[in-house]
């Protein structure tokens, strides 16, 4: 089992990472996508997808996804463990949240890969 120390170390690192990667993500989408496209409802998604033509930005979005999933679900785990205590409850909370986080990461990664492929291959 992973020690609580390691989990919390990752929790703090991902917290800072989210701030950095989140700032890069927001700045990229708002600064590099064409302004007119951002203002048009139909065009906006394609303008955003187009941003991810760059592999580095696609990777940063993937990193953001992983960090948000870990940090968010670990935070939720901590809240639930503080609300109620018990071995069964703790095991159930940890495993259920881990599975949900993994599903979210897998589905999100699929979306990022698709967006990258669409942006590059058309």
């Amino acid at each position: 089992m992973v020690s609580e120390r390691t989990i919390m170390l990752l929790h703090y690192i991902t917290g800072i990472g989210i701030l950095v990667a989140g700032a890069v993500h927001i700045a990229t989408v708002f600064l590099t996508a064409p302004v007119e496209a951002n203002l048009t409802f139909d065009e906006a998604p394609f303008a955003v997808i187009n941003v991810y033509r760059n592999l580095l930005l696609a990777v940063s979005l993937e990193a953001l996804l992983v960090m948000v999933a870990f940090h968010g679900f670990n935070g939720l785990r901590i809240i639930l463990l503080e609300l109620y205590q018990g071995r069964t409850w703790e095991k159930a909370v940890t495993w259920i949240l881990t599975v949900i986080a993994l599903v979210l990461v897998v589905y999100g990664s699929r979306t990022i890969i698709l967006a990258y492929q669409i942006a590059n291959l058309g």
């Binding site: 120390r5 463990l81 205590q85």
Partner: peptide, 9 residues
């Protein structure tokens, strides 16, 4: 103290 309900809470 390095456990689920220890110092980190």
């Amino acid at each position: 103290i390095d456990n689920t309900h220890g110092i980190w809470r």
